[in-house]
Amino acid sequence: MRLLEVRDLALEYRTKKGPFLALEDIQFHVEKGEVLAFVGESGCGKTTLGMSILRLLPENAHILRGEILFEGRDILRLSQEELRRYRWKEVSMIFQAAMNSLNPVKRVGDQIKEAIQTHEPDISKGELKRRVEALFRLVNLPLSRIGDYPHQYSGGMRQRAVIAMALALRPKLIIADEATTALDVIVQDQILKETKLLQKEFGLSFIFISHDIALAFEVADRVAVMYGGRVVEMGSSHDLEDSPTHPYTMALLESYPTLTVERRRLRPIPGDPIKVTGGAKGCRFFMRCPEAEASCKEITPPWVEVGKGHMVSCLRR
């Protein structure tokens, strides 16, 4: 059984200015021990997608159709109590600003202890201490700092503490939404290497949401590129990097500076990312696409398999 499977998910926000289609036709799955990255520009719906997997959506978000199956159970049908258990024990999330979500007046160690205790009230004192210490070691935080308050930590250490918290209940899936964006490159690199080890060791799965393409391609096994609330291309990170197929993916890769001595001129994508209101037909990238034809405006492109597990949604392929 697949760990997570999302089928035909569509979601809209109902705002005063009318409905706004944030996600449409979202299909994907995550295997055990796999890292799947969602990349795209701001407003492409990647954060909403992460939130809907946890059902942490704001009030005006409405799921129009689709299923989110976690180990075969549709989480859109869970009761409040089941949902509460699901959220920490099965899936947990790390946000960008998560390092500010620690309670400033409680010791970091105690906060992690509490998280465990609320879900496992019967746990013994000694076991609890062992668990917290193990978590600290896991994320490479010195044990001597277990009794410190969050403000005594640096930003990187706080983010590690949040990761420890997310791991505290041994979830099967972690959704990391721009989890390292606010950190410096060196710290970011360290944390990513550590999570990579965790993923290997415990068979953890990750959904890695980021606007940083380079990072996503380095971290993920598979990458899904989103644009305007749709996934436009999905495949292994090697395939996507070596042979990007959707015009948007190609443009995205070409707009990204690399570390090469010989500088190829970047090819910026003209225009700004779109916001879709209402169930528009046609390809979302139509307006900015260098290869667009008249039919692209009319026909919603179907999925085409261009390689093993490499899917693309473009009429011109």
């Binding site: 490159v185 060196i186 690199d189 380079a214 990072l215 990097e241 690399t258 570390l259 090469t260």
Partner: peptide, 14 residues
């Protein structure tokens, strides 16, 4: 150390 930490993406001459 900085160069080590940069994601190696695309062609990379480090």
């Amino acid at each position: 150390a900085l160069l080590d930490a940069v994601p190696k993406f695309g062609r990379c001459d480090i």
